[in-house]
Design a protein around this nucleic acid. Structure first.
Lengths: 160, 160
DNA sequence: ACTTAACCTAGTAAATCAGTCAACTATAAA
DNA sequence: TTTATAGTTGACTGATTTACTAGGTTAAGT
């Protein structure tokens, strides 16, 4: 279990997707605009999320991404694990013989805590996050603030 | 709140220190041997831990490191925060003006979760970890396995 | 056909990780 | 009072990861 800005981007994007894809697919361009994340970087993250069966890509006009499961069935640990390289078992890759001939001692110490963190994050679903008032407020504010920007951009492009 | 192998090293080392420094200071050399962590890397980590007032360095022969507080008063979040660069508020460093003129929206989404993780890790003390049976077992096994190695190394050096 | 938007590949500057090397200072034991 | 111990500091390095850019191809709708 690793916790970096990469995972934060993924969780934020998934939260944005969950909030906006109730009726129709959401384009990465929209998410990138709302959350100020690089579009190409988002593409990379969603490539992993798609391969992990967390989202479904819909091609063509009117397309975008949708969640593949109900928000209650997608937890934070899964999202982070999907985009982060899985933390290799360091040194003793499963062999458990890095110190003398005994089982890999160093990592056993950390394992308990690491498992707990994972278990904790597994217990929080996208649905749980969505249900929180502060997040709803922020999302609504983003919609309001960014909607004009998105429409303006589309108008400009249409006119070109 | 970031979670990498760097933090894992720090927690593991602090756990080792807590387990062995009841009576006398523990040298980084011993910790490095037991936990198979680079000595010089440990020195860097403990330099930060010392500046964060989590450990006390005792110089000279018989010296080493000791915890500065009871194990119940040292929590995991503090350890990780001491060695990791604090995650900067990305883009809008406290200014809260990264999107339009409004408050920094993107990061607000993550803040709630990040705070929760921090709160969760704050609730686990070194004492809590020490009290766990599996960790005691592993630590005991390490003592048994590594003690000969340490003594052997000292004998060799004395003879040189 | 043309547009849309997902999908894919390769590359890159910057940051971080994990570690080395080499010096220095304070302290306790000889 | 040497001398060995052990902490302290800083500079430096290769490898990896991050975050991002550029440029394509493919599938689907109008």
């Amino acid at each position: 279990m690793r916790l970096t800005t990469k995972g934060r981007y993924a969780v934020t994007a998934m939260l944005d997707l969950a909030f906006h894809s109730q009726h129709a697919p959401v384009t990465l361009t929209d998410i990138a605009t709302r959350q100020t994340i690089s579009l190409s970087y988002l593409e990379q993250l969603f490539s992993r999320l798609r391969r992990a069966d967390m989202v479904i890509g819909v091609r063509g006009p009117g397309g975008g991404y949708q969640l593949s499961k109900p928000v209650a069935d997608i937890n934070i640990a899964d999202i982070i694990r999907a985009v982060d390289e899985q933390i290799d078992s360091t040194k003793c890759g499963g062999e458990a013989n890095c110190q003398n001939h005994k089982a890999c001692l160093t990592h056993d110490l950390w394992t308990g805590l690491s498992d707990q963190i994972h278990e904790y994050l597994s217990g929080i679903s996208l649905g749980d996050l969505l249900a929180r008032k502060p997040i709803q407020d922020v999302a609504s504010r983003q919609d309001h603030d960014v909607q004009q920007m998105i429409e303006f951009r589309r108008d400009v492009i249409v006119r070109m």
